[in-house]
Design a protein around this nucleic acid. Structure first.
Lengths: 136, 136
DNA sequence: GTCTAACGATTAGCCGTCAAACGTTTCGAC
DNA sequence: GTCGAAACGTTTGACGGCTAATCGTTAGAC
């Protein structure tokens, strides 16, 4: 049932946000920093796609991150439409701290769950996403 | 990874909301009507718990549903602190229609997924919720 | 019996998300 | 070369969710 998926996502999100808050982060900053570090690209459009959020939402968060001195935005000289987003030193430091917290949280979640179960979970969830798109 | 759970929940929620919208509903109204029909209680506090949302949020949605003539609120004569929420005829009719849509959607989601996989999914998700609460 | 604490619901304010409209820049057709 | 279409980012308006504070009601202490 999709209800269980939704409820689990909510519970996990809240719990994760709580532990991030203790380190001076939040779920939204984590999501964006994660996208920044893993997607290797820096255009806002690709960033939004990597974070699975809308461009408008990303703009909102980047404004906050930029105001906090965690990231910088500058025009791409080659294509002045796109904004290149880069981590500042402060942003990099926060990222390092949040990664540790996230790893601890992930380990906590996995407690008592076998690798094969995790594998089935990922597979079924992906199948669900695929099925949700099918038809109208 | 919790990321996959969050992303799946988002995709499923959007898709479900879309199909509900075609029948004149929405994800939030579905959630509340579902809680109303399945939890057999009608106090707002219990309703909010069943729907996994905050009491204040429920009040907000009930205002909308009441304005649309789908539900009624009245004081419990036995304990005038609690408000009893009941479906009107229009609300009942909408519920009947939404149930069909939800069943179709659920069948669509389950396509290509075995019963045992569904079972593992539910079990692991519940375990994740439990683990998220442990410790601080 | 009164008075205080607890409870249920509401209100007010904030945050995160989305869709739609807009301004700017680039690119292709001609 | 110019002009229209497409791409990128931002702004605006709306919605759903939460927390904190408040109001009305009830139950218990004494």
């Amino acid at each position: 049932m999709g209800l269980t998926v939704a409820r689990t996502a909510k519970v996990l999100g809240r719990a994760f946000d709580d532990v991030l808050a203790e380190t001076g982060g939040s779920l939204s900053t984590w999501t964006i920093l994660f996208a920044l570090k893993t997607s290797a690209t820096a255009s806002q459009r690709e960033l939004a796609e990597a974070a699975a959020i809308q461009g408008a939402t990303l703009t909102h968060h980047l404004n906050g991150l930029e105001a906090d001195g965690l990231v910088t935005r500058r025009r791409d000289p080659a294509n002045r439409r796109v904004h290149l987003v880069e981590l500042t030193e402060a942003g990099e430091a926060l990222w390092q701290r949040l990664v540790r917290v996230a790893q601890d949280f992930d380990a906590r979640l996995r407690d008592g769950i076998s690798d094969s179960e995790v594998h089935v979970l990922e597979q079924v969830l992906n199948r669900l996403q695929h099925n949700a798109f099918q038809q109208a």
